[in-house]
């Protein structure tokens, strides 16, 4: 990172070579720029430090953490936290280390998490895109009123929906299934509809009209024109949805009863709320947290460029 944080010098090179938009005042290394970079470095440090601290804690021995709190490196370095997460320690060993003592069927939970997050993401993004298209491009009566109603859904407190939805899932016989966890958010969220509608509004009308003139149906226009043209915002939304679905804890906890529907966050939640009598198993907890976030972090590292670049507004006004 240190090599990357010195571009003030690099930008002094002729701007012609650069393909990025021209940086402002490239020849002056003034006070403002130093201040700005200091600020950015601070932002970067604050953003990343907690991740380092998770790793440091996860690699420490839990019983030693309380006594060695001022050490910047792992205290009594141990893979115990991770071993407990992966269920490699026996129950008694884990409890002795201040852990939960429950076997963790990691690959099963990972698989469940992937299924649930994928179901939610695919369903929600696709159905929301359809609705967003209807709100942005189709002409029908009461369109704006219905849209306003949808938007108001953004404001519904979660407390309203939790219990009725749980009872409904039970009545549908979907308790303890992956579909049961996914169902409530598989159809839409007001945010997704709102988000995509804004983009669809910005797509040039001429292209669409031309296609319609050529005799294409609106359905065809949606699938062959609108969707491909909105890859960037749809990717963005899909990623946001996937992150949210992956991190969902409380609802998944309610619906899941056994290993067959247990997702990663719930499985690792056993580390979170131990009995009130014992202090948290910080090293196991932080290891669990890292493990739960790892698939996301890997995915993010692989696609960082795409993800980051795809977050864009082609034409919100």
């Amino acid at each position: 990172m240190t090599t990357d944080t010195t571009p003030p010098v690099a930008t002094a090179l002729p701007t012609l070579i650069r393909r990025e938009p021209a940086p402002p005042e490239p020849h002056r290394l003034n006070f403002g720029r130093v201040l700005a970079w200091t600020f950015m470095i601070l932002v970067i440090l604050v953003s990343l430090f907690p991740f380092y601290w998770m790793l440091r804690t996860a690699l420490s021995s839990n019983n030693a953490l309380y006594a060695g709190s001022d050490n910047l490196l792992p205290v009594q370095t141990s893979g115990g936290g991770f071993e407990r997460v992966f269920g490699l320690q026996t129950g008694q060993e884990a409890i002795d280390a201040g852990g939960a003592g429950q076997a963790i069927n990691f690959w099963r939970y990972l698989f469940n998490s992937v299924v649930v997050s994928t179901l939610i993401t695919v369903g929600q993004v696709f159905f929301s895109a359809m609705a967003a298209y209807a709100f942005a491009r189709l002409q029908w009566r009461h369109r704006e009123k219905v849209f306003a109603f949808f938007l108001a859904g953004l404001m519904i407190p979660a407390i309203f929906t939790l219990l009725p939805n749980f009872v409904l899932i039970k009545q549908l016989g979907l308790v303890d299934t992956l579909l049961g966890i996914a169902l409530p958010t598989m159809f839409m969220t007001p945010f997704a509809v709102f988000f995509l509608r804004q983009f669809f509004l910005g797509i040039s009308r001429e292209v669409e009209e031309a296609a319609l003139m050529d005799g294409a149906s609106k359905v065809r226009v949606f699938f062959r024109l609108i969707l491909p043209m909105s890859v960037a915002p749809i990717t963005t939304l899909a990623i946001l949805t996937y992150i949210a679905a992956w991190n969902e804890y409380f609802w998944a906890l309610m619906v899941s009863y056994t290993d067959k529907s247990r997702v990663l966050t719930v499985a690792l939640g056993v580390f979170k709320s131990q009995t009130p009598q014992t202090g948290p198993d910080w090293s196991g907890l932080m290891a669990a947290t890292l493990v739960a976030a790892l698939p996301m972090l890997l995915l993010f590292m692989l696609f960082a460029k795409r993800i980051v670049n795809s977050i864009g507004f082609s034409g919100i006004k």
Binding site: Q102, L163, F166, V167, I169, K170, V175, L253, M254, Y257, G269, V270, K272, S273, Q274, T275, P276
Partner: peptide, 20 residues
């Protein structure tokens, strides 16, 4: 089944409501 203290009582309540 073991659930941590907070989750335990929430899940129990939900269980009474939805017969689980």
């Amino acid at each position: 089944s073991q659930y941590g203290w907070d989750a335990y009582w929430s899940k129990l309540t939900a269980g009474f409501i939805a017969d689980t």
